[in-house]
Amino acid sequence: MDGESVTTYNGFLKRRWNISLWAGFAIVVLSLISYIPVFALLPITRDVPWVNYLLFVLGGVLLAIGLKRAYREPDRYRGKISGPILSVLSLLIAGFFVLGILVLTKQLPASSGAPHVGQPAPQFTLANIDGKQIALADLLKGHQGVILIFYRGYW
């Protein structure tokens, strides 16, 4: 009884989950989110994030395989809808990453007014984390010198 709908149901089940689409997308996401906590901390992958670029390529290859399956063998594989969506998202993610690396982090002023080697260092007195006033001279006291690290702040 109701044999036809059972066949249809089985037929639907036979269409396999298109794993390479999702694996490709997962690798692309992983590449984006891993840069700051992992690869930016390692000297060999910080300046040129080649591991992340390789992950994007790998993700792209898997997505391409998944798309091919979804469209060439639609009877066997799913992904005609999810495939293009995941692919477009992946392209946006990779594009954002490359833009960030090549352009956004380089938007720094030239700072041509910064003192040069051989010039006296501008004096200062600033509060430390305990609120105590510390002058440049205090930092130099008993030392050969001091490295001043200016940073953007954790606003």
Binding site: G118, Q123, L148
Partner: peptide, 13 residues
């Protein structure tokens, strides 16, 4: 902007 300076004991960069 991120920057580093080394100042020697005489106060010279």
């Amino acid at each position: 902007r991120p920057a580093e300076f080394f100042v020697d004991s005489a106060g010279v960069i």
